[in-house]
Design a protein around this nucleic acid. Structure first.
Lengths: 214, 214
DNA sequence: TAGATTGTTAATCGATTAACAATC
DNA sequence: TAGATTGTTAATCGATTAACAATC
């Protein structure tokens, strides 16, 4: 029952976010035919410090060549591997109202290996399929999540449904939840939960406006 | 032309985000009829340190009573004022596709004084109104933003339209932009820009899953 | 080789937490 | 008054940045 006895070193969340930003930039650079890039050059594109770029990478290994910089496609591939973007993740979209449907059609997801393999909705009249993706009943959530080996759930249900649906997902062995419902969710520690809270984003903007006067 | 000669003290962004979280909690507590709350009690609800709660508040003044804690409705009112939630902000929703429409129907916004007073879309066939909110042509963006005193824009346009639309908004004197388009935008320093980047959120989840093994 | 740029250590900066005198 | 809890200072922790030897 003992877990692996050494701990994975803790990586700052901001480092992960930057890695994700670097990766996208490298993708673009590769398309543009750029072969190598220095930490200095990469940092400047995002108003970061070049030491920070190097340190972010150093958590995971040595990817550069002294005097040269980093080979764009080599580094891109390494970062994709680190971020788990070298494989496909099976994703469930739960809730197919306005927001769910918007997220489904959002191009950015599938692009990087996140594949929505099933959509779930309470409303049985929505059952069927969109663009080849089955729309199933929330009643079958647990069974289908297991059967389809779904690892990640995107939650776009009304706030009052969020916790019950999460409990079903957790019971079915989901490993990560990206929650858009304005509700605070409880999940066991082994499940990664990430909230996208639009109110907080708007309120931080509002703070700065209120602060700088009319 | 000189700006006010003293600088506003810099408040950490994380403090603002927590203030927003506290406010929502206080709203709930008030509804539940709770009269006072201690920093300890407030902190526990979010796994924070009580000193952090007190310090967050201390940036803005002294709101507590020694031996008692904080009066829920008093503190709520103070925080709302600090966050600019004691007034209405005029918001434009730009882009009325799937995502725009989802954001429009999202309940969370209007709740706290963010009023979508106009929707803009390229497609003239969408012109008209939803729930009493006018849908206007992006061609009239600058004029309408000025005429309606719109201060905040929510961007839900395709990535390639994001920068041109932003330029129009900036030209019309917008003060803050909440960007949902997967595009890196350039705005002058006096405009607050906040990106909601769904890919980064998903990729951080993916990182942790990839990391902890299958 | 000379120039460039990495990987890494040490210095700095900023945010979180502990501790406690002030005081309700 | 005794107990509780604030506001704030000082200690700690962690993340960013500067500096530089290693090396392509």
């Amino acid at each position: 029952m003992a877990r692996s006895s050494y701990r994975l070193p803790k990586i700052p969340e901001m480092t992960i976010r930057r890695l994700s930003v670097y990766t996208r930039c490298l993708l673009q650079l590769e398309e543009d035919g750029v072969k190598t890039i220095s930490s200095q050059d990469l940092a400047e594109r995002f108003n970061l410090n070049s030491a920070q770029v190097r340190k972010d990478l150093a958590y995971f290994g040595q990817f550069g060549v002294r005097g040269i910089g980093y080979y764009v496609s080599g580094l891109k591939a390494e970062l994709q591997k680190i971020l788990g973007l070298d494989r496909e993740w099976s994703v469930a979209l739960v809730g197919f109202g306005n927001l769910g449907s918007a997220l489904f059609h959002y191009k950015g997801f599938g692009r990087q290996g996140f594949k929505i393999v099933a959509i779930f909705d309470e409303d049985p009249s929505k059952a069927g399929a969109v663009d080849g993706t089955p729309i199933l009943s929330t009643r079958d959530l647990a069974r289908e999540v297991r059967a389809r080996g779904i690892q990640i759930a995107i939650l776009a249900v009304p706030p009052e449904a969020a916790q019950p649906v999460t409990d079903l997902l957790v019971g079915a062995g989901i490993r990560a939840v990206l929650n858009f419902a304005p509700a605070r969710l409880r999940v066991p520690r082994e499940v990664r939960l990430k909230n996208v809270d639009l109110s907080i984003e708007l309120e931080t903007l509002s703070f700065y406006l209120a602060r700088s006067g009319r």
